[in-house]
């Protein structure tokens, strides 16, 4: 197992280097002169030279690339042109907001998706199966931003049940410790605030959860169907074991690998979907951070945020692969 992890980590090195390279080249791919675009047409030649030096465009690209890489390895993500603060300092609160939202969404997606899939497989061709699978099909095709708007319209505007924007009660802001507000409010014992934080999570969380939920439900169903046809399950049933235990324990255990793979893939996808959800719900996460940075042409922020998300994405995929191996071996010895 250890040597497998080691091998996987070594394999990752060229991919990570390539990612850094692509992100590094972004600014050089801008048509025209980036410094000019940032500073404007009437910038003085001195200002442009200074900006070029700041962006590292005054040096050959390979020199600059290694400098950039060295900086990143030391945790230097550049400096925001908008706030003139290090991106590394600014990024965490945004990233934390996104992580909280994404976790909330994936948990909803897993709980509802897996159960819906199991029940659908259990009662194959029942009305529940049909409705669930039609909903799942629609869910897969759902533009997340439309779903967000629909949710806002129905739950926040027409019925005023849920807050429309933000992640906390503005008049009673959460005192940030970790910036993961669920944890922060728990640490401070502020259950009233925790309740508010949860309320703010619901709409964006469900919007973000829909697509992975649909995919997980479909995958669970097809994987379960295959397992339930196997002799092993038939035997268990013939032995007169309770159907509930047969389904949820024996069958599910054997169907779990493809489901896990899909969940892992979807967790990565959530990071992409978060950008859209965050714009609709004014969620102060990394997606909105990037969105604002694009409007400001704040390239260091765009570059570093993309790099950080991609890094997390790769890591999630790695963890999923490793878990896969782990569960696989256990099943073999079971």
């Amino acid at each position: 197992m250890l040597s497998y992890i080691g091998r996987r980590l070594i394999q990752l090195v060229p991919v990570l280097l390539g990612m850094v390279f692509i992100v590094f080249m972004m600014i050089r791919a801008i048509p025209g002169s980036p410094a000019q675009i940032i500073l404007g047409q009437q910038a003085t030649p001195e200002a442009i030279a200074a900006m070029n030096a700041k962006l590292g465009l005054d040096q050959p690209w390979f020199t600059q690339f290694f400098k950039y890489l060295a900086g990143i390895l030391q945790g230097d993500l550049g400096e925001s042109m908008r706030t003139r603060l290090p991106v590394a300092d600014e990024i965490w609160p945004h990233l934390a907001a996104t992580i909280e939202l994404a976790f909330f969404a994936i948990i909803i997606a897993i709980i509802i998706g897996i159960n819906a899939g199991i029940i659908s497989a259990w009662f194959q061709n029942s009305w529940f199966d049909y409705i669930a699978m039609v909903l799942a099909l629609v869910g897969v095709s759902m533009p997340i931003f439309w779903l967000g708007l629909l949710g806002q319209w129905v739950f926040a505007i027409e019925f005023s049940w849920l807050p429309t924007t933000g992640r906390e009660q503005v008049r009673d802001p959460v005192h940030a410790i970790t910036n993961l507000y669920i944890i922060d409010t728990l640490l401070q014992g502020r259950f009233d605030q925790l309740w508010q934080v949860m309320r703010h999570l619901i709409l964006p969380g469900i919007a973000l959860a829909t697509i992975p939920m649909a995919i997980i439900a479909r995958m669970t169903r097809s994987s379960m169907l295959e397992v339930m046809r196997s002799d092993y399950i038939r035997t268990a049933r013939a032995k007169g074991q309770k159907m509930f235990w047969v389904v949820y324990k024996h069958a599910f255990k054997n169907a779990v690998i493809p489901i896990l793979t899909v969940i892992g893939l979807q967790m990565g996808m959530l990071l992409g979907g978060a950008i859209l959800t965050e714009t609709i719900f004014a969620w102060p996460g990394i997606g909105r951070y990037i969105y604002d940075a694009i409007n400001f042409r704040d390239y260091p922020v765009i570059q570093s945020s993309i790099l950080v998300i991609a890094f997390i994405f790769v890591m999630i995929n790695l963890i999923v692969d490793l878990l896969y191996g782990l569960i696989d071996s256990r099943i073999k010895y079971d």
Partner: peptide
């Protein structure tokens, strides 16, 4: 294949946003 791996290492919509932010 490595290039493909690297491109797939980004969430796709994010890569699209990055490309558009460069191209305008």
């Amino acid at each position: 294949s490595r290039i493909f791996d690297i491109m797939l290492a980004f969430p796709s919509i994010l890569l699209a946003i990055a490309i558009v932010s460069v191209l305008g």
